[in-house]
């Protein structure tokens, strides 16, 4: 019996569906290990939102009312959970393309969507870690009091926010060189957070900014957060459908980038 070379299967090719879950798990585990071992990713991802939140909500007296405390938590939760997906895909995918890892994956019998889903799951785990850290600070030092259901819905919103963030990251990472991606994804991240009113209340911003915000996904994610916590917010349906649109458009933009022909 051959041990080095498998016999040709008589029919049916591809990964056994039963093994697909295992492949997804291993893929996610690999992603996870790679990201946690990368301090340039894991440390800012966890510490930035917590640090900024602590600065605004605890050090600076901005959480002076209940609403303000909840608003700050919502804003920095969205700020925090938007990063893992955006960077894991935006920078990570550009890197993988530059380094040839993506090419090797494309030759392996792993469906590429499985790889993307695995990466998104890991980004969700990071988002959950951000949520846990922020909630801990908010609950102990931030003076935030929410209904149990509101905490839960905000956490779920935070984890699911990884989906649009990943799609946008994918669109950026599929087309950009790794070195450019780091700069551009950072600008996109901080810029959209700022323009979405995650750092400073929108009503303090100049009028043009106020009119840009409703186009930006973080703004709508924050809207979902405000809905979750009973704060004043716009239409839930509008926010959800806009986020769905952005996600689909970004994913569609990413596809040809991933399939791009080799140039040598």
């Amino acid at each position: 019996m051959n041990t080095l070379t498998a016999p040709l299967p008589s029919s049916g090719h591809g990964l056994d569906p039963r093994r697909m879950a295992g492949a997804l798990g291993h893929e996610a585990l690999g992603e996870w290990r790679n990201l946690v071992r990368m301090p340039a990713f894991s440390i800012p991802t966890l510490l930035f939102p917590v640090g900024f939140y602590a600065m605004f909500a605890i050090v600076l007296p901005f959480a002076d009312t209940t609403q303000a405390a909840a608003t700050l938590l919502v804003n920095f939760t969205i700020f925090g959970v938007f990063a893992p997906g955006l960077f894991a895909f935006g920078v990570g995918l550009a890197n993988d393309r530059d380094e040839g890892w993506l090419r090797l994956k494309q030759t392996a019998p792993l469906p590429i969507p499985v790889m993307m889903i695995a990466r998104m799951l890991v980004a969700m785990v990071f988002a959950l870690a951000v949520v846990v850290a922020l909630f801990a600070v908010a609950a102990t030092a931030g003076g935030v009091r929410l209904e149990r259901s509101a905490w839960l819905i905000l956490a779920i919103t935070g984890v699911l926010a990884v989906i649009p963030a990943s799609a946008i990251g994918m669109a950026l990472g599929a087309w950009m060189k790794a070195r450019a991606a780091i700069a551009i994804v950072n600008i996109a991240y901080l810029g959209s957070a700022m323009l979405s009113g995650l750092w400073f209340p929108l009503h303090l911003m100049p009028d043009p900014v106020q009119s840009i915000a409703p186009a930006l996904p973080p703004f709508h994610l924050a809207e979902l957060g405000r809905h979750a916590t009973g704060l004043e917010a716009g239409s839930l349906a509008v926010s959800l459908s806009w986020l769905a649109c952005v996600t689909i458009i970004a994913a569609a933009l990413a596809m040809p980038g991933l399939r791009r022909q080799e140039r040598k």
Partner: peptide
């Protein structure tokens, strides 16, 4: 999650504090 602080007032739509 269960340890997270909730508004003390039992009233569902009274806010924190």
């Amino acid at each position: 999650w269960l340890l997270l602080p909730v508004p003390s007032h039992s009233d569902t739509d009274t806010n924190a504090d």
